[in-house]
Design a protein around this nucleic acid. Structure first.
Length: 591
DNA sequence: GCCGTTTTCGGCCCGACTGTTTTCAGTCG
């Protein structure tokens, strides 16, 4: 039973192999586009296909042929076409596609003209001088090839993607330098980081200025640059120590909006906008939206819009699309804009740890921090006893902690301090404190911390039990995944979000950039199910509050609106929700 | 291989940079 991710990976594998054979580039691109569509699909493709295979073709980018291949994969666990390609093409060639500056045409050349079948034989062909006899393989190209291989060898297991919360601070520190550079008007980061993707492959920086040379020099002389990959008048690229690539684009200030739009992407979003421009007799690129030139215009038609993103969307008959929503294309964008949750609307933190368990701040320090952020409510939710590694609280310690939280309230007149717990959801779905204890708390965040490799069906059952527990308000980091580290649980999110909506339990978007759990696609499911969502920083130290932006971005990517986000509610509404779940429980248990 | 307000064929986003070339192919985003 292939997952959507596995189907996507299979389609990408076909695309890679086709690429190397020199197949039609549009055909290759069709497989890549279908792969992206499969990955972005929130419905389970296998379930869709089993119910009605024709539904697959309703997904944009999946047509007759690819739909048939997906069905073939689901029913026979193989795709004959893929096996044929694999029998013809040495498996080691695919790895060569990942070398900087090496694409499918070059790999094809290596293979057919120099007998290269993998990285080892490529090295051999370089060292023996055999490669120098191949067309287009001049001294400079071979030198670059050596450098790419060396960079790869040195990197070893160096990551190819980086977590959002690690990439954004790097981008901002580089922008801070560029903003002080002579002639710079505007500077911003674009790309997948601006779209708030949970991981990014590289950084895209955009600068408008009067002095290109000064900006290029400032950029290329920054500390941490390991290797310069390109150095042109309007575009520079460099690899940082640690492997991250940074691209810099320099444009005139008058077209900053067009360039920002263009370099923010996503690729599919750009293609959609360009096609829309063409249909309206216009042409869109990073220098603006122009009329198609008439004979008297020369190469470029009259400018329609370029200064701001808003003006370009408007000229295309669309509302401005927030960067987090730019994975979308097609009819989704023609809907009226949603009231997406915004960073400044978050006024309550409902998941925070103190020195009582594994936090670094005291109750008072945490409360002061919340006040400084303008929050009206803060829940202190230290770990429960099963999280021994985090110094989880025994019932006796918890009782004393509740008293300490209530006592601290007097010192913070503008902040409502809530006594809570982040209680472990045990492997079978039981909670780590008994109901009598939980009933003493204002807020119960129930989270899975152990047994994170259990079967999906067991995980679903486990989490459902916690979601439907009347004393639980929030399910903390529901899957327990660690980005680029641990997959975590894979429960049936359709079941979970439906149950959450039914029981009034909120699902958490944990803002820490190593978690972002719920992930964007899960938020989308929660929104579709009508479930409540909490955006929480899971504060362990003062710096964690700054992660809120990543959680908000993830929530926005999933289409979360203010009214479904409990952290944005007025204090009275929040307290009523916290209390109502409890009284609902009392009612039920008294029957 | 996908797709359709020029719909079953003939397009498919477009520009910068690099290196190898004498005008362009390949890569990348």
């Amino acid at each position: 039973m292939p997952t959507n991710a596995e189907i996507a990976a299979t389609l990408t594998a076909i695309a890679d192999l086709l690429d190397i054979t020199g197949a039609n580039a549009f055909k290759v691109n069709a497989y890549r586009k279908a792969s992206r569509a499969a990955e972005a699909e929130t419905q389970d493709l296998e379930a869709l296909a089993v119910a009605d295979p024709s539904v697959l073709r309703k997904i944009e980018g999946i047509g007759e042929s690819i739909a048939a291949k997906i069905v073939e994969l689901i029913t026979t666990h193989r795709i004959a076409e893929l096996e044929r390609l694999r029998s013809e093409i040495p498996a080691g060639l695919i790895e060569l596609l990942t070398l900087q500056g090496v694409g499918p045409k070059t790999v094809h050349l290596f293979w057919t003209k120099a007998g290269v079948t993998d990285l080892a034989s490529l090295k051999q062909a370089i060292d023996s001088g055999a490669l120098a006899n191949v067309e287009r393989m001049g001294a400079k190209t071979i030198e670059n090839l050596r450098a790419s291989i060396a960079a790869r060898d040195a990197a070893g297991a160096q990551p190819t993607r980086f977590r959002l919360g690690q990439a954004v601070p790097i981008a901002e520190s580089m922008l801070a330098v560029l903003r002080t550079t002579r002639g710079v008007r505007q500077a911003a980061f674009a790309g997948s980081a601006r779209r708030g993707r949970e991981t990014v492959g590289d950084l895209d920086l955009l600068v408008s200025c009067d002095d290109h040379a000064a900006v290029r020099q400032a950029f290329l002389s920054m500390p941490g640059i390991d290797r310069v990959l390109a150095n042109g008048d309007t575009r520079c690229a460099a690899q940082l120590v640690g492997g991250m690539q940074v691209d810099l684009r320099i444009v005139d200030d008058s077209v900053f909006g067009a360039a920002l739009l263009y370099f923010t992407g996503s690729k599919d979003h750009n293609v959609f906008l360009r096609e829309r421009a063409i249909n309206a007799q216009m042409r869109l690129n990073e220098y603006g939206l122009h009329q198609v030139p008439s004979d008297s215009d020369g190469p470029v038609g009259a400018l329609v819009a370029a200064h701001s993103e808003e003006s370009i969307y408007a000229a295309l008959g669309l509302p401005w699309v927030p960067p987090e929503r730019r994975e979308l294309h097609g009819v989704d964008l023609e809907q009226p804009p949603m009231d997406l949750v915004e960073h400044h609307q978050v006024r309550a933190e409902l998941h925070a740890h103190t020195t009582a368990s594994d936090g670094s701040l005291t109750i008072h320090e945490l409360a002061s921090l919340a006040v400084s952020r303008g929050f009206h409510s803060l829940a202190i939710t230290d770990h429960s006893k099963a999280s021994a590694q985090a110094n989880g609280l025994s019932v006796e310690r918890l009782l004393r902690h509740i008293d300490a939280i209530r006592a601290a309230q007097a010192d913070f007149p503008t902040l409502r301090l809530l006594a809570g717990s982040e209680v472990d959801i045990l492997a079978d779905g039981r909670l780590d404190y008994d109901d009598e204890t939980l009933a003493l708390l204002d807020v119960v965040v129930a989270s899975p911390h152990a047994s994170l490799r259990q079967e999906p069906s067991a995980a679903t059952k486990r989490l459902l039990r916690a979601i439907t527990h009347p004393l639980v308000h929030i399910i903390g980091h529901p899957t327990g995944r660690i980005l680029l580290g641990r997959d975590g649980l894979a429960p049936d999110m359709h079941e979970l979000t439906a149950a959450a909506a039914e029981s009034g339990t909120a699902l958490e978007v944990n803002c820490h950039w190593s978690r972002l759990d719920l992930r964007d696609t899960h938020v989308k499911m929660a929104v579709a199910a009508g479930a409540l969502v909490a955006i929480d920083c899971d504060i362990h130290g003062a710096e964690d509050v700054d992660n809120l932006r990543y959680g908000v971005a993830t929530a926005r990517r999933g289409g979360l609106t203010r009214k479904s986000c409990v952290n944005t509610w007025e204090q009275s509404a929040l307290l009523a929700w916290l209390k109502n779940k409890k009284s609902a429980c009392a009612l039920r248990s008294s029957r």
